[in-house]
Write a protein that binds this DNA or RNA. Structure first.
Lengths: 140, 140
DNA sequence: CCTGGCTGCTTGCAATTGCAAACACTCTGT
DNA sequence: ACAGAGTGTTTGCAATTGCAAGCAGCCAGG
């Protein structure tokens, strides 16, 4: 499932390439991929690996992130949200990440208790099952 | 060039899988990939496509971005996202806000200090999860 | 003991990626 | 007109991904 939207990905790459006024061969060479393959990718008949995508992004001087989003490989940025920010921060070790999430939850619960002692909110983590896909439960 | 760091990627995935207390087959099924392939990925002898990575990330309930960074497919972009998110969070008291920022800084400094060239997978003491006796059974 | 269930790992094999070579077409210049 | 240099596209083919089936080891409990 979660079929990649190769079509719009290819369109986007071609669009960016045209915007940069590069020929297919120029971009291909600069990105270190073959011209025919790039052609096929742009027309959506090939599903390029992430490695190729990064090379293309680099050659196009665009963010690899946006390219991934376009390819459907990455969720669009949620922007703010402490939990998502922590979850996304790759400079933290897993232990640290969990610690920070726990602390944050504790703080939020603490505040909720002060204002409205009836809801202990969600310090207890998700032992309950979540049927829907849920990446992060945050919204300040 | 742009050699993918499949080694640490695999380690990271396995680390996360163990942290989630899932068996290889469980994760494989949940991620929609085959068990043997996941095994090979975890041991760093296969270079999984981005599509597979997203599926694994989703099944592990971790950020796909983190996984990409770990795989060397994405630059670790600033990480100051955590600080701004904390700064903007209106549900925190000022004291809590400063505490979290301080903790975060401490964590980052801690990691910078260690600067371990090899496996930073240091899960030596973990109060939250209990990794069962890890009897290493493989030796290339 | 040994059957069943669990863990992860190895082995062929189909499908796909990604490339080198060659094709078709449009301009430009001589 | 024709050679030459651009453009993007098609065509086989090596290398790789990713999988189904099978293998080996470790525990519980008839």
């Amino acid at each position: 499932m979660s079929k990649l939207d190769v079509g719009t990905l290819g369109e986007y790459i071609r669009e960016q390439r045209n915007a940069a006024q590069m020929s297919l061969r120029q971009l291909a060479k600069s990105a270190g991929v073959s011209n025919p393959y790039l052609s096929q990718v742009e027309r959506g008949l090939r599903n390029p690996s992430a490695e190729i995508l990064t090379q293309i992004a680099s050659a196009l001087r665009i963010s690899a992130e946006t390219l991934y989003v376009r390819a459907g490989l990455l969720e669009a940025h949620d922007a703010s949200g402490v939990r998502t920010a922590i979850a996304r921060d790759s400079s933290l070790t897993e232990r640290q990440r969990r610690a920070m999430l726990e602390i944050y939850s504790a703080f939020v619960a603490e505040n909720a208790a002060e204002h409205d002692p009836v809801t202990p909110t969600d310090v207890s983590e998700d032992t309950t099952n979540r049927t829907k896909e849920d990446h992060d439960g945050n919204h300040p």
